[in-house]
Design a protein around this nucleic acid. Structure first.
Lengths: 280, 280
DNA sequence: CGATTCGTTGAATGATCTCAAAATTAGTGG
DNA sequence: CCACTAATTTTGAGATCATTCAACGAATCG
């Protein structure tokens, strides 16, 4: 298959890298992915590739660049729902709905591959296993959102910012776009504020505090975390939620055992004590 | 298959109802689901069925009762990540990780079906299409979390509470547990506060305000929304994100068309104007 | 009935926002 | 490469939303 130019091969490199975290991909699956993601296009920065309320039934494989997924609320305020980086698929899960729930905009000049959603859905019948692997990966994204919820709901502004930067760095590391303590993306204070539900002014003050404490410096579109340990402690950050267990580690029970076995009796119910786990 | 007692049949009724929203299930798939969810057990209220940091490799099909998924932070505060209702599967996506990310606790006496995670994962190979459908459903949950993020990040306390109640009602309606304006579950102000990142005292004040305005009354474990329209306007609530497009509506391109087609040329790049969508 | 849990309220405090304006930097066109 | 414009960062002061703490009444559980 060396007919595919190198450019092709690179297009799904980071996606494959991410998916393989969860589930090894077969060479054939890799090939199919590459074919689906073969309609490659550059996008200038500051462009919406998906607009809320419209439904183009397309998904975008992000090959290069940084994007944000966001919504503008009635009062004009913006909530950034997440930062989209290479290897991510944009348009999910918005494309599941009649209208896109969020807009997606490039922050930098980017390169994406466009595919009709139907092609991805088609995998359900033609390549159900691959489809399941992709959806498995999407499911894991829910964990990230849940973590954002905790971050925004129950943490101080300083902690939120710390956590935000650490998570972003960890995600970038997975796709090889960050080293152990820094990464290079243009992260304006406005974007940070819109992601964390904070005002620009306050983000600025907190960022300054982090800088004064020697923990983080943002300069020239580059974020350098000088003291990862201290920042992690401050943010109560543990990256476990970004690193799911590979599927392959599960013993495969091959539903055979399921066929037999009628209805089982209820176990005796559990007394109503306070802080005791359910004995299973 | 009338060998299965009625109790059996009911066990997956609400799950099937929810899954069928997205994708019709075949009778055979329904049967497999029922078999997986056949280990039915009652759980008294206020019990943890999943504890953060442990990994029992199990999933729980919620048949009856109300539960919460939550985490306790270092400082002792609690973040409720979501309300778990019949038809939901608890343990996802926590089970994807080495350790559960969240605990799940019953709010009321409940009934759940326990299944080894491996059995669900086994579907990937034995019933990949069913597995994909289930994971598709999980993916949609990400939309709900994203919406929570918007809710917590960019809304006033009053709006958050309004939105929270409306979403919960809508989700309950899907599984037939709420009528057009009310539902019956024991929702303490503490739970609401922990879900929305608000203090109990403030939840109380805002709830009182909603009551004084004649919009919502919570009494005797029953939530009655007197003016759904007004509350929806207040919360800027549109339930689209809870109602995904069924998969069946997509034209199935049957990846056949994919086989052909070499690399495509890059389209001309787009000039860097400000607020213009990407022309696709 | 006794013990928790849950709801209600007030006053003081604090975190974060808004508004406004200046200083700085980056981007654009000639 | 310069000049200009737009975008971003920085800073201050006052306003506000929401919290904390503390206390009490009401409801619920066993």
């Amino acid at each position: 298959m060396e007919l595919l130019p190198r450019k092709q091969h690179c297009s799904t490199e980071q996606l494959a890298r991410k998916l393989s975290q969860h589930v090894p991909l077969t060479p054939n699956e890799l090939l199919i992915l590459q074919k689906i993601a073969s309609d490659i296009r550059p996008v200038a920065r500051r462009r919406d590739i998906i607009q809320e309320g419209k439904n183009k039934q397309q998904v975008f494989f992000v090959i290069d660049g940084i994007l944000i997924r966001y919504r503008i609320l009635r009062d004009g305020r913006r909530q950034v729902v997440n930062i989209v980086i290479p290897g991510d698929i944009a348009g999910i899960p918005g494309c599941f709905f009649d209208n896109a729930l969020y807009s997606v905009k490039t922050l930098t000049d980017s390169v994406v591959a466009v595919a009709p959603l139907a092609q991805l859905v088609g995998l359900l019948t033609t390549q159900p296993l691959l489809a399941a692997k992709i959806f498995w990966s999407f499911s894991c994204d829910a964990a990230i959102y849940a973590e954002h919820l905790v971050m925004v709901g129950r943490r101080s502004a300083l902690e939120r910012i710390a956590h935000f930067l650490l998570e972003l760095m960890t995600r970038l590391q997975v796709v090889g776009l960050a080293d152990g303590r820094s990464f290079h993306i243009p992260l304006s204070q406005e974007v940070i504020g819109d992601a964390l539900g904070l005002s620009i002014a306050y983000v600025n003050r907190m960022l300054r505090q982090l800088a004064d404490d020697g923990m983080v410096v943002i300069k020239d579109h580059k974020v350098v975390i000088n003291d990862v340990a201290a920042l992690s402690a401050l943010a109560d950050f543990e990256q476990g939620y970004l690193k799911p267990t590979p599927i392959s580690q599960y013993p495969d029970p091959s539903c055979a055992g399921l066929a037999a076995g009628g209805p089982k009796k209820l176990r005796p119910s559990v007394p109503n004590e306070e802080p005791a786990p359910y004995p299973l």
